[in-house]
């Protein structure tokens, strides 16, 4: 199906409005309350859970299927370098070079 010009704009405006609602929901609904003591422990653990999910879905998934590509290898190499405390700029550069190199083969 192809969308008309007007429909594309409705889609953009609708998505912007829904995203604004999604981002506002937590701060508005929870902001004014005193939260129980365990809530800060949950919040601390959200970062590792969300970041690792972002990384694996970016590297090991394509749409609704698992997939492995040149970037999987590039990011894996950079991951080992990060673990060995190499600088972020170096790790990112190596990831890009490895990925582009494998695709050029």
């Amino acid at each position: 199906m192809t969308l008309s010009y007007a429909e594309v704009w409705w889609l953009i405006l609708g998505l912007a409005a829904l995203t604004a609602l999604i981002k506002a929901a937590g701060p508005v609904l929870l902001g004014g309350r005193t939260l129980p003591p365990w809530s800060s422990r949950v919040i601390v653990l959200m970062a590792p859970a969300l970041l690792s999910a972002l990384v694996v879905t970016a590297v090991l998934a394509e749409g609704r299927s698992w997939s492995v590509g040149a970037h999987t290898v590039g990011v894996a190499v950079a991951g080992v370098m990060l673990w060995r405390r190499c600088s972020l700029i170096l790790c990112v550069s190596v990831a890009v070079l490895v990925t582009a190199g494998l695709r050029a083969l």
Partner: peptide, 16 residues
């Protein structure tokens, strides 16, 4: 072919 899609996972990996 530029391999730029490898940038953002590495950045998030460093944050992780």
């Amino acid at each position: 072919r530029l391999g730029l899609d490898a940038i953002y996972p590495v950045f998030f990996l460093s944050l992780l």
